[in-house]
């Protein structure tokens, strides 16, 4: 477990390369995507493919423009960005939405900052925020699972205007409207287990993120204190997807374990705040983006002491 701790030299080189990490994360994300395609139909598969292709093409074009080696598009990071972006889209979006979203994610979210490893914000979330602000109507038109007769224009469980009741089991299995990759909690958890057991991510961020949301929605989520339906807030929306797969992005989260805890708690507070008090129904992606901006600060205050130098 210790080979992910940040520490001063000497270092032992592990066999875990960036490429391998990327591919394992992609693998871990696949079950949730398959579930999404099963629930919403073949159209969501097309959205996922278009998003990935758009990301790869944008990366290739921009690397060419920057006169870099274009072969690094195959390191998996562009594919991962495209995959996560598509998971954050409603299944019924017009096909040009993932095209624009992929290009924005890669060019504005990643390459303009200097490419992989230099980006401040999670690229897929930059793309998602751009789409959400630019075309709010498309980004909030949800579709029911394909076996429900009233197909289009349903609300997500989190939508404030409509009080639709979902059983916890429906929420857990993904039997409701929502984004492609966020609905099936069961499959997301399988992926999350893969990541934790292969030591790709540590439990710090997901645990503190989800824990904070649960506690805060329990206290403030209902009429009066300690009456909120925290199980609902845990299962509905993109919390699980965000906590395990988006907040844990290596480039845009703090280095130390202490920093990771602060980061996760911050994400949790912001998510609960947006969900309970904000005008948007869902706040996971904005919360992560906001905390991404705080990472340099967190890193600065939680850096480990260099061996041999006293604390000042």
């Amino acid at each position: 477990m210790n080979n992910l701790t940040v520490s001063p030299a000497p270092h032992i080189k592990s066999g875990l390369t960036t490429q391998r990490i990327m591919w394992i994360v992609i693998l871990a994300l696949l079950p949730a995507g398959l579930a999404g395609v099963y629930i919403f139909g073949i159209r969501s598969l097309k959205v996922i493919f278009i998003s990935i292709i758009s990301c790869i093409l944008s990366e290739a074009i921009f690397l060419k423009f920057r006169q870099r080696d274009t072969r690094i598009i195959l390191d998996g990071s562009a594919i991962l960005t495209g995959l996560i972006l598509a998971y954050n889209l409603p299944p019924e979006v017009p096909f040009w939405i993932p095209v624009v979203g992929g290009a924005v994610s890669i060019i504005i979210g990643k390459q303009l900052f200097g490419g992989l490893g230099h980006n401040i914000f999670n690229p897929a979330l930059v793309g998602r925020a751009f789409l959400q602000i630019s075309w709010p109507v498309y980004m909030t038109t949800w579709k029911n699972p394909r076996w429900v007769l009233d197909a289009v224009s349903s609300a997500t469980p989190l939508a404030k205007e409509k009080a639709v009741n979902f059983s916890y089991m429906d929420l857990f299995l993904g039997n409701h409207g929502g984004c492609i990759g966020e609905v099936c909690i069961l499959m997301l958890l399988i992926g999350a287990l893969i990541l934790i057991f292969t030591n790709i991510i540590s439990f710090h961020i997901p645990a503190s993120f989800i824990g904070t949301v649960v506690v805060l929605t329990w206290i403030f989520g209902g009429d009066g204190f300690f009456k909120g339906d925290f199980v609902f807030h845990l299962l509905a929306g993109g919390l699980v997807l965000g906590a395990f797969f988006m907040a844990t992005d290596y480039v845009t989260c703090p280095l130390t374990n202490k920093g990771k805890l602060i980061f996760g708690i911050g994400c949790g507070i912001l998510t609960s705040l947006i969900r309970l008090k904000g005008s948007y129904p869902e706040g996971v992606s904005y919360a992560i983006l906001f905390m991404n901006a705080m990472v340099p600060l967190i890193d600065r205050y939680t850096k480990t002491r260099i061996y041999g130098i006293s604390k000042t």
Binding site: F130, S134, W135
Partner: peptide, 11 residues
Amino acid sequence: FEPALLFILAP
């Protein structure tokens, strides 16, 4: 053409 509202807003 479906305008991207983001450009009209502050960001």
